[in-house]
Design a protein around this nucleic acid. Structure first.
Lengths: 199, 199
DNA sequence: TGTTTTACCTACTGCCCAGTAAGTAGGCTG
DNA sequence: CAGCCTACTTACTGGGCAGTAGGTAAAACA
């Protein structure tokens, strides 16, 4: 292996937790820039100022790293969701309150297109029948589906199908927005679309 | 390279065109089964009963092969679309006629999930900023967008945004359908959703 | 202060990758 | 039947890949 010299003099020694966090942060950027198949252990290691072996000291395999990556992204997402739901926890929401929450989620995503891209790309990659992350996404979508359904149930007869439509629309619009290099107002497009779905 | 022996006695010699078609057919299956990164020249060659070198006699590089693959898929899709549009060419469509056409497109896709998966996976992969297929998908989505907009213009004030919503919903629902292993009635879900969007 | 733990390195392995060079053999055309 | 075109082969190359073995030195702890 072409173990390039680690970034020379300014080599840093971090604690395990710090280093792992730094690696995951870089990994998120790398996947979003280069795609899933563009994530190589050596490249990621170099970006972190490490060697391959140094990186693999913290994650025992590439697959383990990717699963940790997904968890990390998920954790951030969940945090944001909880914030968006915020004070309204457990209440019966009105149509416009639900719409506001859904829009807040999308609005947050607008601020971090690299995370949205990461998500979109790995989610698609995981469509491969025996993909190791397939189950992960299946479960995740079930959770989000349940959340959306709860959100709209108070004022919608068909909460299940509406939730599915909202998810499909959100993912679909986000993908188009990424394809057009964030060149249109995603929040506006989403709000307009979501209103049609929330009848 | 581990050039495995080509399939022994039943080795077939085809004409260039036949062989190229056979290779593309196999490639479509392979990508849809293994993902984009699962497409290796050697594996594809073996599935076609060829060696790596034999395959590369027909496509000068892997990238050229993939672009040919996209064109092939596109060609099939367009053929289907023309069929769906069929007799209605150039007419002003009613809302229910437009819905019928949109549903026909989805209904056709239900019959070939491997093509849908191929499409979804490569489209996501092409979100990478400098991906060689990025421009391809950008143009393609513009074309489909224009087509959908024309379809709904006669009875919709906001044809542009509605077309975008339809595309997003179609892709989003198809992705969920694939993730759930074709485990729900995609056409029904689509029809219900499209009706909400066509106001 | 001596011992242990751990972050990280150098140096390496074996594998698979896309692609090439040079030759063989089957089918078509003169 | 002669010669050519082309489909396809064997055999190879250089490079990148994930992962490993074994060592070094800094921090943490006794």
């Amino acid at each position: 292996m072409v173990t390039l010299p680690a970034t020379g003099p300014e080599r840093v020694r971090m604690s395990g937790d710090e280093r792992r966090a730094a690696i995951l942060e870089q990994a998120i950027w790398l996947v979003s820039e280069q795609g899933f198949s563009g994530l190589t252990v050596n490249l990621l290691a170099r970006r972190c100022g490490l060697t391959t072996a140094g990186l693999l000291h913290h994650f025992e395999s590439k697959e383990a790293l990717i699963l940790a990556l997904l968890d990390e992204r998920d954790r951030r997402d969940r945090t944001a969701l909880v914030e968006a739901l915020g004070l309204t926890r457990g209440q019966e929401l009105s149509r416009s309150e639900a719409l506001a929450i859904l829009t807040a989620i999308v609005a947050r995503n607008v601020g971090q297109p690299h995370l949205v891209r990461l998500n979109a790309m790995v989610r698609a990659e995981a469509l491969v029948p025996d993909h190791f992350a397939r189950e992960y996404f299946k479960l995740r979508e079930i959770r989000v589906h349940a959340l959306f359904a709860d959100l709209v149930r108070p004022f919608t007869a068909e909460a299940e199908s509406t939730a599915m439509e909202l998810m499909a629309m959100m993912h679909g619009l986000e993908a188009q927005w990424l394809r057009e290099s964030c060149g249109f107002d995603l929040v506006a497009a989403w709000t307009k679309a979501a209103q049609k779905l929330l009848k």
